[in-house]
């Protein structure tokens, strides 16, 4: 059972919290609040990028397979351009010549070159943004360390070389599905390397600051 003192305190509890800290205390606290742990957030981004890449590959493969279903079932998807041939009918069966788009390994004239270009642009745009983000983080964490940024530049130059090669392969009528898959793989590899560099730099700077 509460006595009068306990009752008084219980009933007037809020009156006992009448003191306030000095106005400048928040400034001291704010200065010591750490920035969000970007390294931790890298993993969800990396994972999200993997999922996105997997989805794109599945979409590409699905598109190619669907296109194939409109052809004769005996035709196999290859890297060679299918040359149209005219067959002279000897019976009542008529072979209709199919116009083949020389830039693609498909005979479905409903698939336009523009959609491939859009897909290429979409992929490169997404991954270029991912890489730019990591480059900025490395710049920030390493305080613009020349050696580290030189390595980053080398990696980005490698991506440019591989992408240029990919573009040439697209123009040469190579299998779109395989080309896009290679494109995504190139980007994923570079992102993994940049992630590892970022992790390494973070660990080194953490050790220095201990």
């Amino acid at each position: 059972m509460k006595d009068n003192l306990e009752k008084f305190i219980s009933q007037n509890r809020h009156q006992f919290d009448d003191e306030e800290p000095s106005p400048g205390l928040w400034d001291r606290i704010e200065n010591s609040v750490p920035a969000p742990a970007r390294m931790v957030r890298m993993r969800p981004l990396t994972y999200a990028a993997s999922i996105a890449a997997a989805c794109i590959i599945v979409w590409i493969v699905a598109s190619v397979v669907m296109n194939q279903q409109s052809h004769d079932a005996d035709k196999v998807l290859s890297e060679n351009i299918i040359r149209p041939e005219l067959k002279v009918a000897q019976h009542d069966t008529v072979f209709v010549p199919v116009v083949v788009n020389p830039e693609k390994n498909t005979t479905n004239t409903n698939v336009t070159n523009a959609s491939d270009k859009n897909l290429y642009a979409e992929i490169t745009q997404y991954y270029d943004a991912e890489i730019a983000q990591r480059k900025a983080k490395l710049q920030s964490v390493s305080s613009g360390n020349k050696d580290i940024m030189y390595q980053v530049q080398e990696e980005l130059a490698m991506i440019d070389t591989l992408n240029a090669q990919t573009q040439r392969e697209l123009g040469n009528g190579m299998n779109i599905g395989l080309v896009m898959e290679q494109l995504v793989q190139n980007y994923r590899q570079s992102i993994d390397i940049l992630d590892m560099m970022l992790e390494q730099v973070n660990e080194e700077y953490a050790q220095i600051n201990e």
């Binding site: 006992f16 919290d17 009448d18 003191e19 306030e20 800290p21 205390l25 928040w26």
Partner: peptide, 8 residues
């Protein structure tokens, strides 16, 4: 929200 009560 919490500084006053925690200070006390």
């Amino acid at each position: 929200l919490y500084s006053k009560s925690m200070f006390n």
